[in-house]
């Protein structure tokens, strides 16, 4: 692995900003390599799709493709589970925690980036330490806490917990990002009578958009994929997120593999689409951000 890596930059990376159409054959080589890698990255998920489409009795056959594609599996999986509700829970949880992270992290990051205040270092340390905790280690405490609050099986619980475990990264990235935006622009606005909060919203936020998008997408994807807390804090199939709902295809004696993979595909596709949609904004935001 290491040797291959060391060689690769040499063949591919003299200058990232090489003028258009400079080296035709080289571009082709790069494209071929990139397309090959893209295929490699997608292959495991393609196999998931194929497995999802296998007829049940061909699941343990040593074949690349089944004799026929059982599209009805995708319909059955819908009937045989609470997938629709799980999907809804996942969307609400991922969306809700992303929003909450934005509301909470942005002001904190802004203030921390712009002001020197006592306890600033301590605050950043607290945030960094939070990043080191995995909810997997804290499940019992979380369960006890939300049981006592009577909030088990609630969507709010999952929103709050997911937001909290993603705060660290968001605060961190946003602080860094906002710190790189010159303060003079806001100061000018504030001289004109805008409040600090107004300046943050009207001047800094648009400039910080790429950083915000990064933090948001990170939160969204992590919450969307979260499993351990969902498993512990929800017990009713209808209130479980998708990742946990899929677990219910594992029975005491049997596993419905094609349903598992069908549901997985259903879970993956929206995020990839969301990302494809947002990446464009990130790219345009990037240019705006680098004006500096």
């Amino acid at each position: 692995m290491a040797t291959a890596t060391a060689a690769r930059p040499r063949t591919t990376g003299p200058s990232p900003r090489s003028p258009k159409r400079a080296f035709r054959p080289r571009t082709l080589l790069i494209a071929a390599l990139a397309w090959g890698l893209a295929a490699l990255f997608l292959a495991p998920y393609l196999e998931m799709v194929i497995t999802a489409l296998r007829p049940r009795e061909e699941l343990r056959d040593r074949t690349y493709l089944p004799s026929s594609f059982e599209w009805s599996n995708f319909i059955e999986v819908w009937k045989e589970s609470t997938l629709g509700q799980n999907l809804q829970v996942s969307l609400l949880v991922a969306g809700g925690s992303t929003l909450l992270v934005l509301l909470v992290a942005l002001p904190a990051a802004y203030y921390t980036a712009r002001m020197k205040y006592r306890g600033r270092k301590l605050f950043l340390l607290l945030v960094l330490v939070t990043q080191m905790f995995q909810p997997t280690a804290l499940l019992v405490g979380l369960y006890r806490e939300f049981y006592q609050l009577g909030m088990l099986n609630s969507i709010w619980t999952l929103i709050i917990t997911n937001a909290a475990f993603n705060l660290a990264f968001a605060v961190w990235i946003l602080t860094a990002y906002i710190g790189s935006i010159p303060a003079e622009l806001e100061e000018a606005a504030m001289v004109d009578g805008t409040s600090r909060f107004g300046a943050m919203i009207r001047v800094t936020l648009p400039l910080a958009l790429p950083g915000v998008v990064t933090a948001l997408i990170f939160t969204f994807i992590t919450s969307w994929n979260e499993f351990a807390m969902g498993l512990t804090l929800t017990t009713q199939p209808e209130s479980q997120p998708l990742t946990v709902g899929i677990n219910n295809f594992v029975g005491a004696y049997t596993v419905q593999w094609n349903y598992i993979f069908a549901a997985s595909v259903v879970a993956i596709v929206p995020v990839v689409i969301l990302f494809a949609f947002i990446e464009r904004h990130v790219v345009s935001g990037l240019t705006a951000g680098s004006v500096k």
């Binding site: 602080t175 860094a176 990002y177 710190g179 790189s180 790429p210 990064t214 990130v282 935001g285």
Partner: peptide
Amino acid sequence: MSLKAPPSPAETG
């Protein structure tokens, strides 16, 4: 995607 040469928070400080 867009950690525009992210100065670490501490560096910013």
